[in-house]
């Protein structure tokens, strides 16, 4: 049940056809896991908190550095040296005190990932490396939790939504590890991709629109062009081949 205060705060989105009070209540009940509090992990939870998602858990093990501030917009000069999760959660709580925001300072590993996502309805990929993304993809498939992929590099970004057992997953389209390290990026790129991820999350929770499934969206900021590529479920995928549609949600 929405309070009078919530009805007023979310009035403009409740007006959207297909959202309504029912959709807003779904957002209020939703629990979203955000893996990473960097560039993407600054943008996605900001818009989810503003939209009234009930519980947001942010996990990251880094501390804020000066060189983060061109893109990680939840962290400010005064936060340098602080844990990123603390800095992020403080801002998100100030943005919307009606939302429960949890900070977990841990590195996501094969050992702890299942426990970290336990009880959450959706997983947002805001990581900065592919091996961690594969871990998230795998646990999302195993636990039957929708997974919202995003990645950035320079002025380019990608996004895809994965519904376990139904759609192509990250491992269906990606071959393996890639050499990574310090990558170039400008803040507007995670801004665009993080907003796409947040849009997908909101649509999934409310149950409206057409999700970015079986479609990899590539954003080219320099040409200001969005290109969509079809992604197919790989019948031999090492993460999702054994998972059938309609599996029981844990």
């Amino acid at each position: 049940m929405l309070t009078r205060d919530e009805l007023e705060r979310y009035d403009r989105q409740i007006m959207i056809m297909g959202v309504g009070e029912e959709g807003q209540e779904k957002l209020k009940k939703a629990k979203v896991f955000i893996a990473g509090a960097g560039g993407l992990g600054s943008v996605t939870p900001t818009y989810l908190a503003a939209a009234g998602v009930g519980v947001i858990r942010v996990v990251d093990h880094d501390r804020v550095e000066l060189s983060n501030l061109n893109r990680q917009v939840l962290h400010w000069d005064e936060d340098i040296g602080k844990k990123k999760v603390d800095s992020a959660v403080e801002k998100l709580k100030r943005l919307n005190l009606r939302v429960k925001v949890e900070a977990i300072e841990e590195m996501i590993t094969e050992v702890n990932i299942s426990q970290l996502v336990d009880g959450f309805d959706l997983i947002v990929d805001a990581m900065d490396n592919l091996p961690a993304r594969y871990l998230l993809n795998k646990v999302a498939i195993e636990r039957n939790i929708p997974f919202f992929h995003g990645a950035v590099h320079g002025f380019e970004g990608r996004a895809m939504t994965i519904i376990p057992g139904e759609t192509a997953c990250l491992r269906c389209i990606y071959r393996g590890a890639i050499i990574e390290g310090k990558f170039p990026v400008i803040g507007v790129t995670p801004g665009v991709i993080g907003c796409i991820q947040a849009t997908e999350v909101i649509k999934y929770i409310v149950g409206i629109g057409e999700l970015l499934t079986n479609r990899l969206l590539i954003y080219d900021g320099l040409n200001m062009k969005f290109t969509e590529f079809k992604a197919k479920k790989d019948p031999y995928c090492e993460h999702c081949a054994q998972v059938s549609k309609g599996q029981d949600k844990k």
């Binding site: 560039g39 900065d128 592919l130 990645a151 590099h153 590529f229």
Partner: peptide
């Protein structure tokens, strides 16, 4: 045919 590069930044 399109050649793209997998990216991993966040």
């Amino acid at each position: 045919l399109s050649i793209t590069l997998i990216i991993g930044g966040g």
